[in-house]
Amino acid sequence: MNQVDLQRRSFLKASAGAAAIAIAPGMMLYQVANGQTAGASSKVRWGMLIDTTQCKTGCNECVTACNRENGLSGKTGPTDSQWIRKIEIKDISSGRELSLPMMCQHCEHPPCVDVCPTNASFKRADGIVLVDKHRCIGCRYCMMACPYKARSFVHEPLHDQNPDVPRGKGTVESCTLCVHRVDEGRLPACAEACPNQAILFGDLNDPDSEIARKVRSVASVQIRADLQLNPGVRYQGM
């Protein structure tokens, strides 16, 4: 009887040990995988301050850099994707003219996220609004809802994609604030490429950041502020 009990005990020990060895690598991988998503913190609010007085008509450097970084064709036909575009604006009453870049404004209350039926449009904890390319069914409701016309629909099969920036035919896409660069501590491509430093990128929530100090000290506006979406992109000099 005792003999049997001892055998059973050693069998259970061996089994538990084998199970632990089998599970351990998986658990470690799980932790590694989990560790990668720890980047987005709700303490951070990524944003941009665009100085329209420094942005030059005819300069397209930010657009070119965005296209190169994200693997866009750079074509501007009605079915081509444009994540950032230069808009020329002229005050009808005063005649004052300005040139400025327009892209996803990374709203605090994004209408695209509200209307998305499948939760494919989502806002990261750090305020970056993204599209989950695996969940998007291509209904284009977000494009109808966006007040800034910031989104494009992929109308054709894609080739030569940038591995850091997955895209997909039949899904909707827009400026990601170069999330793959931001997560590595780098600047978005447009901000880095601007020859006049007209695009200031940073953490709006950090009172000591350059962007937060500048937003406090100079007049800036949010586009369509009347909609109270609290965009993360602000414009100076308008």
């Binding site: 009605p78 444009q82 230069k86 808009i87 604006i89 002229k90 586009i223 369509r224």
Partner: peptide, 12 residues
């Protein structure tokens, strides 16, 4: 997008 302004771009 810009009420009170005339606007133009490559994105219509």
């Amino acid at each position: 997008i810009f009420p009170g302004y005339e606007v133009s771009s490559t994105f219509a």
